[in-house]
Design a protein around this nucleic acid. Structure first.
Lengths: 221, 221
DNA sequence: ACCTGAACACCGTTCAAGT
DNA sequence: ACCTGAACACCGTTCAAGT
């Protein structure tokens, strides 16, 4: 029984059963030990979750993580450091694989996992030629955007798998329609179709592009 | 005892004691009733929190809410609808006044409060001349950014008031320094000073400007 | 019909008792 | 020194019993 073994078991439970599946009792069961035994190695549940998140995030941006085949950035050889966009997508995919990570990152700003992401993003900006005095603000914007999107997508993934995702969104849109007429929620009505059709990952990438385009505009001033 | 009275009492407890102060027992105490009485009027705690959030967000963007004196957008007469930036700052200030709102908004993407914000942001973009086919993507980016920043600032506000905020950040930065040398976290070291000095609200506004500048760049293509 | 509050099925965390 | 697991102090939620 060690700190590393506990964190590993926690990640397995979180991946298999989600956030609510992880309790000190379920953890004790998996490790065939007593419920209180873990407190010798981790201070409390918050620290355990932070450590689990940091464990997953540790490899990000170092080129050791394999990229999805669909990733447009896979043109970048893995021996090179990825661009800011590729890095952001790497974290996005990580959250897609481990939805609980999205909630966890959004929960506490100063946890190690968030700092690691902030560092990795900031370094890409240095390479990308963003001037020194704007790097902090651009990195903050990118990380805040990432955490916001992550929290939303993580929550969306809690939609029961039985219901079709686009069905869900369409019926949600229909719900709004009945709750409020077109006069009350004109914008949502106008984009309801896009809401049902859109691809989360593409939309995420589009948002990153927006921020990077804004940063490029900054550079010209 | 009514649904509205319960939501009102919940907001008061949340404002006074924070998220962990709100329990069905504390709520029952304030309303001088039994712990189970509320279940006639609200389905469960999740719904109660969503309703409390929606209640606060309801007035946003309608010009009924007073702007902070320090708000640069206060040049806009309150009889006019505020710009996208002014609207975003309005929500930011709301979260600043009710930190629990930040966590709550970040928690569930399809809750009424988030939809209201999405609608309000989207409408401002229509006025701002963002072309139809980009409005959805820009609104999503702005809302995701807002929710990410909101979650972070809300969590930051949980830092005990006894410790000075900039002291906290400096000591945090010092902590990183000792945990990892300059070679390991070069970017964080480079911006540590800005981290301690920066104003949350200004940084938030800068991020919004970045996204809007990106949107303006989009418009030109 | 609505409220009451004890009871149920959980939590995270602690700590005497064991090895 | 480390593990065990009952016990403690909570939760959200339910439901028989009251009015």
């Amino acid at each position: 029984l060690s700190s590393a073994a506990i964190i590993q078991a926690a990640i397995e439970i979180l991946d298999a059963e989600g956030e609510e599946g992880l309790t000190f009792r379920s953890l004790a069961g998996r490790l065939s030990t007593g419920a209180g035994a873990m407190y010798r190695h981790v201070a409390n549940k918050e620290e355990l979750l932070e450590a689990a998140a940091a464990e997953l995030v540790a490899g990000v941006g170092s080129g050791t993580r394999s990229l999805k085949a669909s990733d447009p950035s896979s043109l970048t050889p893995s021996s090179q450091t990825p661009s800011s966009l590729a890095l952001m997508l790497e974290v996005f995919d990580l959250i897609d694989d481990h939805p609980w990570l999205g909630s966890q990152l959004a929960r506490a700003p100063w946890q190690p996992a968030v700092l690691l992401i902030f560092e990795a993003v900031g370094e890409r900006l240095t390479t990308a030629g963003i001037p020194d005095h704007h790097r902090f603000e651009v990195a903050s914007a990118l990380v805040h955007y990432l955490l916001g999107a992550a929290g939303q997508y993580a929550a969306s993934s809690r939609i029961p798998l039985a219901v079709d995702r686009s069905d869900f969104l369409v019926s949600l849109a229909a719900d709004w329609t009945s709750r409020a007429g077109r006069e009350e929620l004109p914008f949502i009505h106008a984009v309801a179709e896009q809401l049902a059709d859109h691809d989360d990952r593409e939309q995420f990438a589009a948002g990153v592009d927006l921020i990077l385009a804004g940063a490029a505009a900054l550079r010209r001033t």
